[in-house]
Simulated assay, not measured.
Amino acid sequence: MTTATALDYATAPNWSVHADNGIDYAYREIGTGAVPLVLLQHFRGNLENWDPRLVDALAAGRHVIAFDNVGVGATTGTTPSTIAQMAHDAIAFIETLDVPQVDILGFSIGSFVAQEIALTRPAIVRRLVLASAAPRGAAGMHGWAREVIGAVGKPQPDPADYLGVFFTSSPASLQAGMETLGRIHGRTTDVDAPTTWATQQSQYDAVCEWGIPDHNALHRVSAIRQPVFIANGDRDPMILPHYSHLLAGLIPHAQITIYPDAAHGFLFQHAAEYAADVTAFLDAEVH
């Protein structure tokens, strides 16, 4: 790993680290702090799909690390088709940080992986932040609605489809979406490799497997004992906000916030407020 970090995400260099599982992981980091905050990305997203405005706000008082999991972007290997294996792959990257514990922020499919990391290797997780999340086995999560997967599941991304899923139809939300797209696509040098169609297919297979209705699987998350902050937009069409409430009821030490007039990209639309809420959660004393 590097020993110095950049001042902002938009200009931070891409790095690579070789892990014990034989994978070379691409990552980007900014900020400083004793406990790193590791970011787990959404479906088909790579290093470029984090909004720099959000990452910079999160890194104002801590070390923030975004990375591509196996087979994603510039990271080597083949993307697995299960969330469980994605979690093991993420743990292999986290082990390269050589720190006792990390905080984890998982977004969308990244939130599934984050839950599995906390269950598989609880000792390395200090606190957990879940954005647009759902527990394994929840009824109605076996694949996304046809209009959602039709929008985000095409071989080539479409900005209009992105706006339709990540933001609402209100003028304020759409404006926030356009500004987010401008920031996300503003980097022109040292750009991460695009996510392949094979990776997208494997990720969606993993999403579908995770969402097979299973009442017994729902109770797995009750074993998560770390403090957990759960959040979503009130109009997320991809992972409905009622799954956030379900998770908050299943995890013993969870708190929840739902952001108004916001969809799947609520954390980008409400970047300043969300970063402040995440920071307050991560910095709070444990009672």
Rank of each mutant, 00 (worst) to 15 (best):
I23K: 00
T279Q: 15
A114I: 11
H219S: 07
P194W: 10
L181K: 05
M1D: 14
P194G: 01
V113R: 00
G186H: 00
T120M: 02
W197V: 12
D283K: 15
A6F: 14
Q85N: 10
Y259W: 09
A118N: 10
S132P: 08
A160F: 11
I256R: 06
E95W: 09
P171Q: 03
I117W: 00
Q175D: 14
P52R: 02
Q156W: 09
I104K: 01
A134F: 04
R44V: 13
L282C: 01
Q101S: 12
V129I: 10
L163P: 00
Q115G: 06
D192S: 15
D51V: 14
A57C: 08
R62H: 02
A118L: 07
P237A: 13
Q41G: 14
Y204E: 01
A131S: 11
N21P: 02
V278T: 01
M141R: 06
G164P: 06
Q255I: 12
I149W: 02
I104E: 01
A276D: 13
S111V: 04
I258H: 08
A131W: 00
A172Q: 14
E48T: 12
T75E: 13
T75Y: 02
S108L: 07
P171W: 02
D56H: 06
I83T: 02
A134S: 14
A272C: 08
A92E: 10
Q156K: 12
A263Y: 03
R220N: 09
S173K: 12
L97P: 02
A284L: 05
D98Q: 14
Y9E: 12
D234I: 03
T195I: 08
D68L: 06
P155S: 04
E48F: 09
T3S: 15
W210V: 03
A133Y: 01
E273T: 15
L128S: 08
T78C: 07
Q41L: 13
D103L: 10
T75K: 02
V125H: 01
I109L: 07
A231F: 03
E95M: 09
A4H: 15
T188P: 09
V148E: 06
H215F: 05
F167D: 03
K154V: 08
T11Y: 04
V152A: 07
T79L: 10
D283M: 10
I94S: 00
S202F: 05
G233A: 10
A19W: 00
G137S: 07
D261W: 04
F167P: 08
I230H: 04
V72A: 01
L7H: 14
D161E: 08
R126M: 06
G164L: 05
S111Y: 03
T5K: 12
A4I: 15
L181C: 12
T199A: 15
T279D: 13
S202W: 03
G233N: 12
V191Y: 07
G77L: 12
I230K: 11
I117H: 05
I212C: 02
V148S: 03
H245S: 10
L246M: 12
G186F: 00
A26K: 00
R220V: 09
G164S: 14
S108N: 11
W15N: 15
Q175G: 06
